[in-house]
């Protein structure tokens, strides 16, 4: 199945890509997808454990099962700042 990967901010810069297509076996979880992403984009491998993930525009946990056509986004810490 195909999953569209989107990367932002520091992750986009360090990976050198804003978007990529991932080919994954049916039933792949976010955690396994992140391992594949780390191999394909070694420049961000060290950041991946800390990055939040969104699937189809909603924050998702590492155990979330991906489906064909999903959009998986790597979310660096948000800009927020101090209150």
């Amino acid at each position: 199945m195909n999953v569209r990967l989107k990367m932002f901010a520091v992750l986009k810069e360090r990976s050198g890509a804003a978007e990529a297509e991932l080919q994954l076996p049916q039933g792949t979880k976010v955690s396994a997808a992140l391992e594949q992403i780390g191999r394909r984009f070694p420049g961000i491998a060290d950041v991946l454990p800390k990055a939040a993930v969104a699937v189809n525009l909603n924050y998702a946990g590492r155990d979330t099962v991906l489906h064909d056509g999903d959009e998986l986004a790597l979310i660096p810490p948000v800009s927020g700042g101090r209150a």
């Binding site: 932002f8 901010a9 520091v10 979310i75 948000v78 800009s79 700042g81």
Partner: peptide, 13 residues
């Protein structure tokens, strides 16, 4: 504003 600061998918450089 508290919600935006905590979770909005916007990044700053």
């Amino acid at each position: 504003i508290d919600a935006l600061k905590a979770e909005l998918a916007v990044w700053k450089k």
